[in-house]
Design a protein around this nucleic acid. Structure first.
Lengths: 339, 339
DNA sequence: TTGAAAGCGCTAACAC
DNA sequence: GTGTTAGCGCTTTCAA
């Protein structure tokens, strides 16, 4: 099978010089004569020499690896954020190891352990839906291993985070509904313990208040964000004696499920019920009618999170910064009552 | 910032024994006395000792890393395959480094180089759309570094591959159309040089022949699989004097684009035109009408590819196997002309 | 039953 | 200018 990679030693032997000479020549050390340097670099190139990162890592105690934990990798939202992270990581000569928690607390804990075993230099994570307690990050925090959270972030932990301004985003949705003549605005929310849910709920209440509408308990239902569960929530809303004239789904999965149920019941979107989602997929334009939705700056979130990570690497972990990005409301057919 | 990780040496010093004793005790070497072993393991556990993979890797010349190159990570199709790969990889104690070629040949070449630099033990790859030439894999093949391809595989290279039976899949689509009364079956195909395109094209021609229909050049148009380009292709089909009564889109992106155009022109699906896609996204159920589509066993593809990879690792690269998986036609509203 | 030493590939301080 | 050496963390002969 042959030797797969050649080492400094191989080069040194072939040229009859010492290993350190080769090492120096390869980094253009001024001590080495121009000819020798030239000759060595030439051979290294021919032989396709690449320094062994394992050796370097051992020496410098760094793996150039970032662990990334997401609830799930097959969602466009996370996949896109990961792309952003990788872009910045690669620019710094780092690689990412992606680990999916599958929305399970248990798997998240395991991911942390495994990634640490692999000696990643730090972690960038979005909490799983099942995570309500953060002690599995204690070791990182104590030993000041770089740790950045995005989107779903822990409460009460003094760590760098990147989130999106959910309060403003949902407020603008409510105002948008209002401007389109909606007065019974319903909301299918998510699990209470998630930071994103809390923010969006607050945005909803404040938005409704700002529009001078009464807050009606019946118009706020929760679900676990699965399609089936979201469908049940939509059914509940549509079973009310006085129908809502607008529904906001906490994410696109939820909005899609609601759309299906609304249509199934023979109601028209947006005429009977206006519908707006919160982007985690990118198929808003494919459904009928096209779904008005808040756009996450996903790629940006990833880049910013990675940026924070490298600040942490450089500054040695002793800083915290909470970055909040803005979203954009993209209005499509599903919410345009006025013409 | 404190010491992040502790080593055998730390343990040895604390206990006043030698490093090798600790090393042996940790792997239950029979030479070490039961008490000492017990004591050492106890301390190791307390101190959260984890062997340094860098040191192990250097020693054994292995990184336990697999490089995975996909055209793009934000597509459900690839993301799901990656999950499958990671499942098997993790079972073997391996991690994956994902690299996205962005459908660009140039970036694919770079990815190969970077991954090799990082000393992955091998590569699992799906070719980019821009790749028509495979010399960037030569070094891997010559040095017998494990290399597995899936879905879009190179022609003429004797390497293990995992693909899907596109010929049968498309044949069954054509038959399905035929059974639903369609007689002018159109096809929006992809780039000619891709193996998947070739297979699906063959399936289309054979299927049409099997149904006893004439093959009409005008009913086969190609696109580069981007939404815009697919839309143009659909327009071309719909501009024909004699409209097709069925359209097959080579993937879901293409089918979605066609659906939009068909609707825009005021035509009904499936009454006027039946529509079928080939799954790379999972929103077939969200569009209106729900899209009949061929389902890829994506997770399975990933698992099988990883399985092949580990065979290669074990057998030292000297084997090749081409696995073909079957797809499933999931019939939804978009193609049901009969009731 | 345990310890010492070499070596995986590399860098850097220290010779000469 | 170039070579020697120690050491990063670990396993594994070889000694004791």
């Amino acid at each position: 099978m042959g030797k797969r990679h050649i080492s400094l030693k191989d080069l040194a032997e072939e040229l009859g010089v010492s290993i350190s000479t080769v090492s120096r020549a390869l980094k253009n050390h001024p001590d080495i004569s121009a000819e020798l340097t030239q000759k060595i670099q030439q051979l290294a190139h021919e032989r396709n020499y690449v320094p062994n990162p394992l050796a370097m890592g051992l020496l410098r105690q760094q793996t150039k690896m970032i662990g990334v934990i997401v609830p799930d990798i097959v969602t466009h939202f996370y996949a896109s954020i990961i792309s952003g992270i990788e872009e910045i990581a690669n620019q710094h000569g780092y690689f990412c190891i992606i680990s999916s928690s599958g929305e399970s607390f248990q798997k998240e804990v395991e991911s942390v352990r495994n990634l640490l075993k692999a000696r990643v230099e730090g972690l960038i994570v979005c909490l799983s839906q099942g995570t309500k307690e953060f002690s599995h990050f204690n070791r990182l925090i104590e030993t000041e291993i770089p740790l950045v959270f995005f989107d779903r972030v822990p409460s009460g932990l003094n760590v760098p985070t990147v989130t999106v301004d959910g309060v403003s985003a949902v407020k603008s949705i409510v105002h948008h509904f209002y401007e389109n003549g909606c007065r019974r605005i319903a909301y299918i929310s998510g699990p209470e313990h998630l930071s994103i849910t809390q923010n969006r709920n607050r945005g909803f209440r404040e938005g409704v208040a700002e529009c001078g509408l009464p807050f009606e308990e019946d118009l706020l239902v929760s679900c676990n964000m699965s399609p089936g569960n979201a469908n049940a929530a939509a059914k509940k809303l549509l079973a009310q004696p006085k129908l809502p004239d607008a529904i906001f789904g906490i994410n696109d999965t939820v909005a899609f499920a609601a759309m299906k149920e609304i249509k199934r019941q023979g109601l028209k979107i947006p005429e009977d019920i206006a519908l707006v989602g919160f982007t985690d997929e990118f198929h808003s334009t494919v459904v009928d009618p096209p779904l008005t939705s808040v756009t996450h700056p996903t790629f940006e979130i990833g880049k910013v999170a990675a940026g924070l990570f490298f600040k942490l690497i450089e500054k040695g972990g002793s800083f915290s910064e909470n970055i909040v990005l803005q979203t954009e409301l993209v209005v499509r057919e599903s919410s345009k009552k006025k013409r």
